[in-house]
Computed example of a mutant assay.
Amino acid sequence: MERPVVYYVFDVLCSWCYGFSETMHQFHEDHKDSIDFRIMSGGMVLGEREGAIGDLPDAVKEGFKRVEEMSGRPFSAAFYEMLDKGEAQLSSLPGALALATLRTYQPDNAMAFAKRMQEAFYQEGLPPAQAATYGHCAEDFGMNSEDFMKLMVDKERLELVQKEFEVVKQWGITGFPTVVYQDKDKAYLLARGYVSREQLDENLKKIQELV
């Protein structure tokens, strides 16, 4: 029997995804025996949006406090120090390449790895545009950091990630996090933006009653 699928569309740089990551991690743990989970990178910061963290609009910087209040997940002193220094570069591509790499070799750990990548940025204050940050994360999953960084820059990996960005765009998803529930040929929006665990469970229950 074909199992339903939950697509979690996130971005490594998305602060609301960081706030949501513990909720999504637990949701995955609780439902992975009956639902297939697939995590995708949305490509939030690419092209003209790439640049130094210090160039972020004040509204975005002020939004970090809102994320903390809503989710209860704090940003570290190391992150705020990086923000104040303003030099770290922001790009969604390295994180997307890292996720695609880990997903290829350890698909069952993709959700946990996405959470770990965001912790590297928002808790450890590691630069999100540097491959070494993701090599560091991969070590927690039993992979050699140098080998992992080489796998990240494989041409096929880049093509896969670019196709992933296009699929997300075709789906009309422009904000993160977004969670989609698919059962056979029908798809339902499970969450758009940050929601509590209670709301996520309630949304799932309502959708499952429909199908």
Score class of each variant (00 low, 15 high):
55 D>F: 03
34 S>M: 07
208 Q>G: 05
3 R>N: 12
33 D>W: 01
28 H>V: 13
179 V>H: 02
113 F>S: 05
156 E>F: 01
145 S>Y: 09
97 L>R: 08
37 F>E: 03
15 S>G: 05
54 G>I: 10
48 E>K: 00
115 K>R: 15
186 K>L: 11
204 L>G: 05
38 R>H: 14
88 A>E: 14
143 M>H: 10
57 P>W: 00
51 G>F: 04
197 R>M: 14
75 F>H: 03
179 V>F: 02
159 E>I: 09
165 F>K: 09
99 L>C: 09
127 P>G: 04
202 E>W: 01
164 E>A: 01
200 L>I: 01
138 A>W: 02
134 Y>W: 04
4 P>S: 00
211 V>A: 07
182 Q>V: 12
69 E>M: 06
82 M>L: 12
113 F>T: 02
159 E>L: 10
20 F>T: 09
133 T>V: 00
95 G>H: 08
105 Y>W: 10
137 C>L: 05
124 E>P: 10
163 K>Q: 15
82 M>C: 06
102 L>R: 05
68 E>A: 08
108 D>S: 12
47 G>I: 06
34 S>V: 13
100 A>R: 15
73 R>Y: 05
7 Y>N: 06
128 P>H: 06
94 P>I: 01
161 V>H: 02
3 R>W: 04
169 K>Y: 12
4 P>A: 00
69 E>T: 11
204 L>T: 06
108 D>E: 15
184 K>Q: 15
116 R>V: 10
97 L>Q: 08
206 K>H: 11
108 D>F: 00
140 D>T: 03
80 Y>H: 14
156 E>P: 02
46 L>M: 14
66 R>A: 11
160 L>H: 14
139 E>K: 02
3 R>A: 10
73 R>I: 15
132 A>R: 14
109 N>H: 15
157 R>P: 07
60 V>C: 03
138 A>T: 05
59 A>T: 15
1 M>C: 07
110 A>M: 10
134 Y>R: 02
148 F>W: 10
167 V>Y: 13
74 P>N: 03
